[in-house]
């Protein structure tokens, strides 16, 4: 758990750190953060509780408990990661544990959107490349991996992989406007215009 890392801020162009491999498809957000931990009015304490039940079951052998992974900031996953509940508590828990980027084959829609809005890029690799990266991560554990957002490139020792990223997300990370609030509220007048034209808000008169 790398508590020393700052939370994402501004343009996100490069991410450097060690990788942590989490195997399995369809890992849902109930597993990332079980519902009982959602009884809170702040996200602050969620870092410790990430994968609470899975970790308990694995008794110290879960990837999030293995000593060598404690400083990891890049998470490798497989298919449909983050499916199920919309709880932002899931990426918040990962971020507070120390994760700053997630690389996988595919991500669930709402989870992906939640990651963007807190500054965690979700990068996708072709299946073959993902398997290679998992392999290298296991063989050369603890080495630094670097992600270059401009080049869409992941470099691990002498291996290079080209990733894909959602274009909207890429633009937001590049500009630093991944926290959408300021962009959205800059259009308040236009929002009022649209609102004035919507039938169900205006007694259905056209």
């Amino acid at each position: 758990m790398s508590l020393s890392l700052e939370f994402p801020k501004g343009p996100i162009t490069k991410i450097k750190g060690t990788c942590l491999c989490l195997e399995g498809n369809d890992i849902d957000t109930d597993r990332i953060i079980p519902a009982r931990f959602l009884k809170c009015v702040s996200f602050k304490s969620l870092g410790d509780q990430v994968f609470a039940d899975d970790r308990k079951e694995k008794n110290g052998l879960h990837p999030f408990d293995i000593k060598a992974n404690q400083e990891a900031s890049i998470l490798l996953v497989e298919k449909n990661f983050g499916c199920g509940s919309s709880r932002e508590h899931a990426p918040q828990a990962l971020m507070r544990w120390g994760i700053r980027a997630i690389i996988g084959y595919s991500f669930a829609e709402i989870f992906h959107g939640n990651c963007i809005s807190i500054g965690i890029p979700c990068l996708t690799l072709e299946e073959y490349n993902l398997t290679c990266l998992q392999q290298i991560t296991k063989e050369k554990a603890g080495k630094n991996c670097s992600i270059n957002m401009r080049k869409r490139e992941i470099v691990y020792e002498e291996s290079k992989f080209i990733f894909s990223i959602d274009k909207g997300a890429e633009a937001m990370f590049k500009s630093g406007n991944w926290d959408a609030t300021s962009t959205l509220i800059s259009q308040l007048e236009k929002i009022k215009d649209i609102k004035a034209k919507i039938p169900y808000i205006n007694n259905f008169e056209s």
């Binding site: 709402i110 959602d166 959205l184 929002i191």
Partner: peptide, 21 residues
């Protein structure tokens, strides 16, 4: 109709709108 995360709940409260694909 669609589910959103908490940051987006904030966005809707602030602007009655969302950035959506």
């Amino acid at each position: 109709a669609f589910g959103i995360g908490t940051s987006q709940v904030r966005d809707v409260l602030a602007s009655q709108s969302l950035a959506m694909k």
